[in-house]
């Protein structure tokens, strides 16, 4: 498989074309904008927690526009992160980052990565890392109480 097919895997193209959880959330517990001004990727993320003691992430949704990598990353993240605690979200935020910058091998974490493993090919494209990580940085900011727009440029 060539590098382009590694990058634009079926699952990424599918989530780009039909993004999941792609809508505004009324009564969100947290809401934050992610914007990369140089390339124009621009999203708003919404988070709702459940009523449990640990406040698990009940739902993440998003709206906005950007390239296939950023949109698929947002879509896959929004589905993946559902039901996770804040600590778990933090763990996956760090793991995802390490995978797309090539610091860790996706093969070593294949089970816990699930669909996130599709982004392993991004590490071959340093210019596109910021696209894949924008949704994660924004979600991380929303969860940790940031209130200014997040950028990964």
């Amino acid at each position: 498989m060539d590098e382009i097919r590694e990058l634009y895997q079926e699952v990424i193209l599918d989530h780009n074309k039909n993004p999941r959880n792609f809508h505004v959330m009324e009564n969100a517990d947290a809401e934050l904008e992610g914007y990369n001004p140089l390339c124009g990727d621009h999203y708003t993320f919404y988070v709702r927690y459940d009523d449990s003691e640990t406040k698990r992430i009940a739902e993440v949704s998003f709206t906005g526009n950007g390239c296939a990598i950023s949109k698929a990353s947002a879509s896959i993240m929004s589905a993946f992160i559902k039901g996770k605690t804040k600590d778990e979200a933090e763990h996956y935020f760090n793991l995802f980052h390490d995978i797309v910058v090539g610091k860790k091998s996706a093969a070593d974490h294949i089970e816990e990565l699930g669909k996130l493993a599709a982004f392993a090919g991004v590490s071959e494209f340093p210019m596109r890392v910021k696209c894949a990580t924008l949704p994660w940085h924004t979600l991380h900011g929303a969860i940790t109480g940031e209130d200014t727009t997040i950028s990964t440029e």
Binding site: D2, I4, L7, Y8, G66, A68, I69, M127, R128, C131
Partner: peptide
């Protein structure tokens, strides 16, 4: 197709 995706694929 977003122009950045076009740019990356062209580059390859």
């Amino acid at each position: 197709v977003h122009p950045h995706d076009i740019g990356t694929i062209f580059d390859q």
